[in-house]
C-alpha cells in the first residue's frame, strides 16, 4: 500500500524532506510511525504526537487506506 506522509517543524528537519510517498505494510498510523522512525530517527516520542489523516485529526489506531495522506503533528505552537 502506498501512502503520502508530510512532515513539519522538527520532524521535517530530521527527515530532511517536506513529504514522501511511502510503500508500507503498516495497518495504522501507529505502525507507520514505527516504520518511518527506523529510517529517520525522530527525536519526538510518539506519545507527544497527534496524527492527522486526510486533513482531519484522527487516531493512531485508525486503519490506513491506499493513497491516504498522513501527518504526524508535533506539539503545536500557534499564536
Amino acid at each position: 500500500m502506498k501512502v503520502k506522509v508530510i512532515y513539519f517543524a522538527a520532524m521535517r528537519e530530521q527527515a530532511k524532506m517536506n513529504e514522501e510517498w511511502v510503500e508500507t505494510t503498516a495497518v495504522n498510523a501507529d505502525e507507520l510511525f514505527d516504520q518511518l522512525n527506523e529510517t529517520h530517527g525522530f527525536s519526538l516520542d510518539k506519545s507527544h504526537l497527534k496524527v492527522a489523516i486526510n486533513e482531519d485529526y484522527s487516531e493512531f489506531q485508525t486503519e490506513l487506506k491506499e493513497m491516504d495522506t498522513i501527518v504526524f503533528i508535533p506539539p503545536v505552537a500557534g499564536g
Binding site: A9, A10, S47, V51, S58, P75, A77, G78, G79
Partner: peptide, 26 residues
C-alpha cells in the same frame, strides 16, 4: 497545526513544543 521556531541571541534555534499537550493524544 502551526509551529514556531525561536531564533535566539545565544545558541542554536529551536522548535517550541509543549509536550504536555501532546501527552493527551488526540
Amino acid at each position: 497545526p502551526i509551529w514556531k521556531k525561536e531564533h535566539y541571541v545565544d545558541g542554536p534555534s529551536d522548535w517550541i513544543a509543549c509536550h504536555r499537550c501532546g501527552e493527551y493524544g488526540n
